[in-house]
């Protein structure tokens, strides 16, 4: 998957991003939006979860959603964690971005995550949760007619994902290295 690329790029130093003064952590099921171009949104340690990184370069608005599950099964939980479910989280993310001055037609998206950390075929429904999340995120974006510019999904390794609001650059780090999606 990304290992070939890693060899070409060599080790990437993420410390400049990771030490940014305006680091905004996006936890399980959260949606965070910022209009500070120097802000960096980050989701740490994604396994089957998916980080949806959305940005409008003209308005310089960026948002991140930390998706845990594909479809909403619990409305109460969704009120508390609007980004928990891919299907109902996506419209919320876009609305939040619009509220911060983004224009729907200019929004672009990068996604990362959706790994299956467990290899053993013991639990059908759970094992492909990563894959299910990725499919649900793609479907939700399609129905909003928002394009996916880059994606770094699947595999068996956990990821941390950073989005630089001002540039729309996404950095993905795994245990073995990092990849930048400018």
């Amino acid at each position: 998957m990304i290992s070939g690329k890693l060899d070409q790029l060599g080790p990437i130093d993420v410390s400049s991003i990771a030490r940014s003064d305006s680091l905004i952590a996006v936890g399980l099921g959260e949606i965070k939006v910022s209009r500070d171009p120097s802000a960096v949104l980050v989701s740490f340690g994604l396994g089957s979860c998916v980080a949806v990184c959305a940005y409008d370069l003209t308005a310089r608005v960026g948002g991140m959603m930390h998706v845990v599950l594909p479809y909403c099964s619990n409305k109460d939980s969704a009120r508390k964690f609007p980004g928990k479910y891919a299907d109902i989280g996506m419209p919320t993310l876009i609305r939040e971005m619009e509220n911060h001055g983004a224009m729907r037609t200019r929004i672009q998206v990068k996604i990362a995550g959706g790994a299956s950390v467990i290899h053993a075929a013991t639990f059908d429904g759970l094992l492909d949760m990563g894959q299910k999340n990725v499919v649900a995120v793609r479907t939700a974006l399609e129905s909003e007619s928002i394009p996916i510019v880059s994606s770094d999904t699947g595999g068996h390794k956990g990821r941390s994902v950073w989005l630089v609001v001002g540039t729309g650059g996404m950095t993905v780090r795994t245990a073995s290295g990092a990849t930048v999606y400018p």
């Binding site: 396994g47 979860c49 939980s77 790994a115 390794k157 956990g158």
Partner: peptide, 20 residues
């Protein structure tokens, strides 16, 4: 051997369907 969040996701994927 992986990031804590990634490993815990395996357990969470089931539990969080029911609770937070």
């Amino acid at each position: 051997l992986d990031m804590a969040g990634a490993i815990l996701d395996v357990a969470f994927a089931e539990i969080l369907q029911q609770t937070d």
